[in-house]
């Protein structure tokens, strides 16, 4: 803001000198249009949030604590989102472990190592396209590959409808996004940094490791966490690869492997199935679950901002 103020002052002075007292009508209209767009998008968000909050109020005001710690139930007054929250956490944990390293590594290769050949350009274009493929298509991929073909590995006792399948499907979904955002972050590192490092005799590995990556880290982080938030909110592919939408019990005493190869539900799929149930109680539960989802995504985004600020470098 402080950087803009003096420039604007200069700009107005120059404008006044050149144009006299004639008003810049087009400029004003443009500015008004921009402001209107901003207000409109904000208004939509506020209406959405407002209706969800007012629908959710009966639940949030009376049993917010129980709501996030209870399991799914057929009775609207007992139902909670604990399993959905846990399920979504495990899923995005899975995505963080599988898709983040893979995506970042692939991006480093493409951006720093790969030569600018036709094949590599084709590869990058393809990744760009993949990032725009509708999520349901990844659901079909997950169903065919992870649920059906690899069911002996992904979930031998549940016919492949496990956390592993869901997590791998979501990983495939966000992988192109992670690659693209990481490439973008790497590209933003000034050439001069690389050249200076090469100039003092650093190898390519040392340049990437000690100079490019640290400078690109804030961008990579922001991208990684935003794609986790995207994975967190995905519903359609999970429905295809078998997230449970009805009742699910999660007994104790299972090993982590048994849990990962077992059935699961997630917050978005819970919201989806609750929205189809009859009565005001479920309407309130659905809205409350939406609020919980929004809060979690908000926290994730906040984490992204904090991380970015922490690693931010100026040059």
């Amino acid at each position: 803001m402080s950087a803009i103020a003096p420039t604007r002052h200069v700009q107005t002075t120059v404008e006044l000198a050149l144009r006299g007292r004639r008003r810049d009508v087009a400029g004003r209209v443009f500015q008004g249009g921009l402001l209107l767009s901003l207000l409109l998008s904000l208004a939509i968000l506020i209406v959405l949030l407002g209706t969800s909050l007012s629908d959710a109020w009966p639940v949030l005001s009376s049993r917010a604590g129980a709501f996030v710690t209870s399991n799914v139930s057929r009775l609207d007054v007992r139902a909670g989102v604990r399993q959905g929250i846990v399920g979504s956490m495990i899923l995005i944990g899975f995505v963080a472990i599988v898709a983040m390293p893979l995506g970042i590594a692939a991006a480093i290769y493409l951006q720093e190592y790969a030569r600018d050949t036709r094949i590599n350009r084709l590869l990058t274009t393809n990744i760009r396209n993949l990032a725009g493929v509708p999520s349901i298509v990844y659901g079909i991929l997950g169903l065919v590959v992870f649920v059906q073909a690899l069911r002996a590995v992904t979930g031998p006792n549940v016919f492949g409808r496990s956390y592993v399948s869901g997590g791998l499907t979501l990983s495939a979904l966000v992988l192109p996004i992670v690659i693209l955002i990481t490439m973008e972050a790497l590209r933003a590192v000034p050439r001069s940094i690389r050249e200076a490092a090469y100039g003092v005799g650093a190898t390519q590995w040392e340049v990437v490791r000690h100079h490019v990556l640290p400078y690109a880290a804030p961008g990579i982080f922001t991208g990684a966490i935003l794609s986790l938030a995207r994975a967190f909110g995905e519903t359609a592919p999970l429905l295809l690869v078998g997230a449970v939408t009805g009742y699910l019990s999660t007994p104790g005493g299972r090993t982590p492997l048994e849990i990962l190869q077992g059935q699961y539900t997630s917050l978005p799929t819970q919201i989806f199935s609750w929205s189809r149930l009859a009565g005001d109680g479920w309407k309130a539960n659905t809205a409350a679950a939406i609020i919980v989802l929004l809060v979690i995504i908000l926290v994730v985004n906040l984490a992204a901002i904090l991380l970015r600020n922490r690693y931010d470098r100026r040059w």
Partner: peptide, 11 residues
């Protein structure tokens, strides 16, 4: 994610 998994197992 590991904490979440442990949490899932503790019911």
């Amino acid at each position: 994610s590991i904490a979440a998994a442990a949490c899932a197992g503790s019911g």
